[in-house]
Design a protein around this nucleic acid. Structure first.
Length: 448
RNA sequence: GUGGUAGUAGCUCAGUUGGUUAGAGCACUGGUUUGUGGUACCAGGGGUCGCGGGUUCGAGUCCCGUUUACCACCCCA
């Protein structure tokens, strides 16, 4: 019986594992640089957790089953509900702001295609307890720095920045109520990939004859790229009373956010683009998505503010903002930009053993080097010198340690720099002490 | 869930109008070789030609189904 990997799942042979760990390493490094703390949560959760957040429809997209105890469970398709539970349970004792991150595998039962698999890794970064735009700025800056840490620059990616609060004000100014606004946001979300005629038909259901003119005003808003355009657009909205003061406050939030981003060095990457609203209704304020600079392909990362979600999932009132970055789209981009380093995993030392008589001495020295952290390889079976030297060269090791009858009889080991071919004999008892300088390549001058 | 394209060795591929026992390069293993260089020489292992059915004297090749992958749609937390 020949077994195959399940659709949409990947195997990580050592090369692929090294690539994956490179990505994880950068994610973790940047998150720590911003002083986010790493947490983790179960991979398997009650199905109800996801239904509560996303509705019954989500079940069709999950790996779910009943466990032996009759519980309906699902592999996690995202981290946010678990995180909301963790936060909710300890909200009152956590020092704010709470800045946490996670790197973990997630599972979605969807048709695999470019940039999307059924099992994938996500970098989740969230801030809780800070309602102001400085938290949004912190996260977006972290997002930009993460992508930069892979060697990507403003030619490679952009972060498109939008604001659902602002949309709600704009739609209120159009006279729409909450449900009408939600429906229109759903349409805006799909604007780029829908034909104009279809859009107008859909809008007409909500707005009747005014649909086409209304679409024109939406398009004008989406075309906004600068803060001054945005400010005058907001100031011209026909709003009164409370709504008008909300609009004023929003202008000042935008101003703060953009100033912080500029100051944090993320200014070159951020693009005002109200065309982003993000599919899910739980986002409440600023939302953003990172894309390859041409706008092609799937989003590299996406996130935004979700101030109401913790409470909805049973926690206290707790403002929140977060984003997630997937490994699949990211690695595709890094590959296409030649930014995925070809990691060669190679030992520091490779031991060459003349014969069985010399093996014990060689293994003893190898064990010492290993115990202090050097990467040391030796042949598990007896082989001729010729084969061993060939293997040593192919291994990519820095240095070969040669244990022959002659050397051992004099208490020595021969060290060979496999790159240069230089050789040197040293006392076995000096090996540990001299290992650092030998690896530094500082022994050409000592060559005999 | 819908559609398009594809599937021959671990990898990249060849395989004639349907005709003997399905090939090459790379990789792998062993040897030449118990003292030295990546690309030397020799040998070897490895395939139910994705899977199932059909047509045929005969199928890697033609037909049908199915599965997987890639790509697009739906969806995208």
């Amino acid at each position: 019986m020949q077994f195959e990997t399940l659709p949409g799942f990947r195997e990580f042979y050592p090369d692929a594992c090294a690539r994956r760990n490179h990505v994880f390493g950068r994610w973790r490094q940047v998150a720590r640089a911003f002083n986010f703390l790493e947490y983790d949560a179960p991979v398997l959760e009650p199905l109800e957790l996801y239904i509560e957040k996303s509705g019954e429809e989500i079940v069709g997209q999950l790996f779910n089953f009943e466990d032996r105890g009759g519980r309906a469970v699902a592999l996690r398709p995202e981290m946010t509900p678990s995180l909301a539970r963790l936060i909710g349970a300890k909200a009152n004792s956590l020092k704010r702001p709470v800045k946490w991150f996670n790197i973990g595998e997630h599972y979605r039962y969807e048709r695999p295609q470019k940039g999307r698999l059924r099992a994938f890794y996500q970098f989740n970064v969230d801030i809780f307890g800070e309602p102001g735009p400085s938290a949004d700025a912190e996260l977006i800056a972290l997002l930009c720095q993460t992508l930069q840490s892979f060697g990507l620059n403003s030619e490679d990616f952009k972060v498109r920045l939008s604001d659902r609060d602002l949309w709600l004000l704009m739609l209120a100014a159009e006279g729409l109520d909450a449900s009408g606004s939600a429906a229109v946001l759903g349409i805006i979300d799909k604007l780029e990939r829908t034909e104009r005629g279809t859009i107008i038909e859909k809008l007409a259901v909500i707005l009747g004859d005014a649909a086409e003119k209304f679409l024109g005003r939406i398009e004008a808003a989406i075309a906004i790229r600068t803060f001054s355009e945005l400010r005058s657009y907001i100031e011209c909205l026909p709003l009164e009373g409370d709504l008008a003061s909300q609009a004023q406050a929003r202008i000042s939030d935008w101003q703060q956010l953009l100033r912080h981003l500029e100051a944090a060095g993320a200014g070159d990457f951020v693009q005002i683009d109200l065309g982003i609203v993000r599919g899910l209704a739980y986002y409440t304020g600023f939302v953003f998505e990172a894309f390859e600079a041409s706008g092609e392909g799937r989003a590299l990362a996406g996130g935004g503010r979700y101030d109401a979600l913790i409470k909805k999932l049973g926690g206290p009132d707790m403002p929140a903002v977060g984003f997630a970055m997937g490994d699949v789209t990211l690695m595709d981009l890094l590959d296409s930009r030649g930014r995925m380093p070809a990691y060669v995993q190679r030992p520091d030392f490779i031991v060459i053993i003349g014969g069985e008589a010399e093996r014990d001495a060689a293994l003893g020295d190898a064990a010492q080097l290993r115990s202090v952290g050097y990467q040391v390889e030796y042949p598990l079976k007896s082989q001729g010198f010729g084969k061993q030297f060939k293997a040593a060269n192919q291994s990519g090791a820095r240095l070969a340690l040669i244990y022959g009858e002659d050397e051992l009889s004099r208490g020595l080991v021969k060290v060979r720099d496999l790159a240069s071919g230089h050789e040197l004999e040293i006392g076995r008892d000096q090996l540990l002490q001299r290992a650092p300088s030998l690896l530094e390549g500082g022994f050409e001058n000592e060559t005999e």
